[in-house]
Lab assay of single mutants.
Amino acid sequence: SSCPGKSSWPHLVGVGGSVAKAIIERQNPNVKAVILEEGTPVTKDFRCNRVRIWVNKRGLVVSPPRIG
Score class of each variant (00 low, 15 high):
P64K: 05
W54R: 04
A22H: 10
V61D: 01
P64G: 04
R50Y: 12
S18E: 14
V55N: 03
E38T: 08
E37V: 11
P65F: 03
A22G: 11
E37M: 11
V62D: 04
I53K: 01
I23C: 08
S18W: 11
P29N: 06
S2E: 11
S1F: 13
H11N: 15
I53M: 03
S2K: 11
V31A: 05
L36D: 00
P64T: 10
W9S: 02
V42K: 05
T40V: 07
A20V: 05
V51D: 04
A20F: 01
R66W: 05
L12S: 02
H11W: 10
E38N: 04
W54D: 05
F46D: 10
R52P: 11
R47Q: 15
S18L: 12
P65R: 01
P64W: 00
W54I: 08
I35A: 05
V19Y: 11
S2M: 09
H11R: 10
R66F: 08
V19G: 03
G5A: 15
V55W: 03
P4E: 09
W54V: 09
V51A: 06
R66I: 12
N49I: 01
T40W: 04
C3D: 15
H11Q: 15
G14H: 08
S8W: 10
R66Y: 11
V19L: 10
N56P: 04
G39M: 01
G68P: 07
G16Y: 14
G14I: 03
V19T: 13
P41S: 11
R26P: 01
V13Q: 01
P65S: 00
S18G: 12
R58F: 14
K57S: 14
G5R: 15
G16V: 13
R52C: 12
N49L: 03
S1N: 14
E25Y: 03
G68S: 08
D45V: 05
H11D: 14
V55S: 02
H11K: 10
I24L: 04
T43Y: 04
A20H: 00
A22V: 13
S63K: 13
A20Q: 04
R26M: 13
V19Q: 13
G68H: 04
R47K: 14
E37R: 11
W9H: 00
V51N: 01
L12E: 04
A22R: 13
A33W: 01
R66A: 12
L36Q: 07
R26F: 09
R52T: 12
V62F: 01
S2Q: 13
A33K: 00
I35F: 08
E25S: 03
G16E: 15
S18F: 11
C48Y: 08
C3P: 15
P29A: 10
L12G: 01
N30A: 14
V34R: 06
R26N: 09
Q27V: 07
R26G: 13
P10R: 05
Q27C: 06
I24G: 00
G16N: 10
I67K: 15
S8Q: 15
E38M: 09
V61R: 00
V55E: 01
I53A: 02
R26Q: 07
S2P: 12
V61H: 01
V19H: 07
W54M: 10
P64H: 00
K21R: 06
V19C: 04
N49P: 05
K6S: 14
R47S: 14
K6V: 15
V61M: 00
V61N: 00
F46C: 10
W9M: 06
I23H: 08
G17Y: 02
S18T: 15
P4C: 15
K21W: 00
E25N: 00
V51R: 02
P10M: 05
N28W: 05
E38R: 07
W54E: 07
V13F: 03
L12D: 03
K57W: 04
I24K: 00
R58K: 10
K6R: 15
V61P: 02
G17H: 04
G59C: 06
P10L: 03
I35M: 05
R58V: 10
R26E: 14
F46H: 10
E38Q: 12
P64F: 02
S63Q: 12
N30K: 14
C3I: 15
G14L: 01
E37F: 07
V61K: 02
R52S: 07
V61S: 02
K21I: 02
P65Q: 01
R66S: 11
S7C: 13
I24S: 02
E38S: 07
R58Y: 12
T40H: 09
A22M: 13
K6E: 14
G17L: 01
G68L: 06
I35T: 03
G17N: 00
G17Q: 02
P10N: 10
S18N: 10
G14T: 02
N56I: 00
S63Y: 11
S2C: 14
R66T: 13
E25P: 02
K44T: 12
S1C: 11
G17K: 02
P29I: 05
P29K: 10
P65Y: 00
N30Q: 11
P65A: 01
K6A: 15
L36F: 08
P64L: 02
V51E: 01
I53R: 00
V55D: 00
R50C: 15
S2W: 11
S8L: 12
P29W: 02
S2A: 10
G17T: 01
V19D: 11
K6G: 14
S8R: 10
K57E: 13
V13H: 04
C48K: 13
I53V: 09
P29M: 05
I67R: 13
V19W: 13
G39T: 02
D45L: 05
V31N: 04
T43I: 10
G39E: 03
L36I: 13
P4S: 13
I23D: 02
I24E: 03
A22C: 08
T43L: 08
S7W: 12
S7Y: 10
S8N: 14
N49Q: 06
D45A: 06
G5C: 05
S63N: 09
